[in-house]
Amino acid sequence: MTIPDTSATPVPRDAEPIKAIPVRHPGRWVAIAVIAVLAAMFAHLLLTNSAFQWKFMLQNMFRPPVLWGLFGTVSITILAMIIGVVLGVVVAIARLSNNPILRGTSWAYTWFFRAVPRYVLLIVMGNLGILWPRLEIGVPFDTYLGELFGVQAHWRLFGIETRDLLVGFWVGVLGLALSEAAYMAEIVRAGMLSVDPGQDEAATALGMSRGQALRRVVLPQAMRVIIPPTGNETIAMLKDTSLLIAVPVTRELFFQLSAIGNRTFQVFPMLIAAILWYLFLVSILLVGQYFLEKRFSRGYGRAAQAKMKLEGLAAEHGANPEVP
């Protein structure tokens, strides 16, 4: 390569900005017209049919029992997700452990709860009282073992009436949480498998135990993969609380709205009220999910990397390195 004149430094020159006529999009105008007509037709449907009973709906969708049910729905969603995530992490770790018993058990768990539909599971759990009026903890097969050795055996530590334990609210939470744990286990497992095995190896080579390597190195990196689908799971969970009508759980939004609808014979307005409530709740969750995803992509996305680079530069110029 030859350089003609090394003494001359290249000078940036001015340039005329491009002025061009933009491409026309006639298709867009057609689409707007079509959609406007469809929207007008839809509005016509909603406003002219008296069966919608908008006024009645507005009067009833904020009544105390509905708000009580709404609070129940939110509580069940939160509780079921917390239990589901914790149990899911445990099942996922068991699934990836070296212990074949743990591996097999966790596989069976996910297999069962993924295969059984939530609606069916909830009905079954609501009716467990038929099968066992009393739940007791003790030695398995005690009476049979007793017969075998010719003694009267009833080795139970403690028991509780099924009716008392499996009251609506907690059956609902438990049923949804058990089912959720199976899905969360798969999500967490995928997240853990997405982490480069070199990471676990480096932690191991430093003398970290398996638990430390998981907690300090693998899981924090798996979070990036785990968080977005967990947001989706939370949204699905919120909607699935409407299935609790199968148990039945009374402290639940859809139950309360349907109850008003059935009592007043104004079924449809209350169904619309349910749709509006779920739209509202899910919208809030979507906003939350957006910020969660932003936070957990730290150090990975292009924008996040640029931001970190700037922080790093600032730290370098600030001379004194310190740990956050």
Binding site: Q305, M308, G312, A315, E316
Partner: peptide, 9 residues
């Protein structure tokens, strides 16, 4: 002076 930098940087 790179103590506060992340590996990707």
């Amino acid at each position: 002076e790179k103590a506060r930098n992340y590996p990707s940087q």
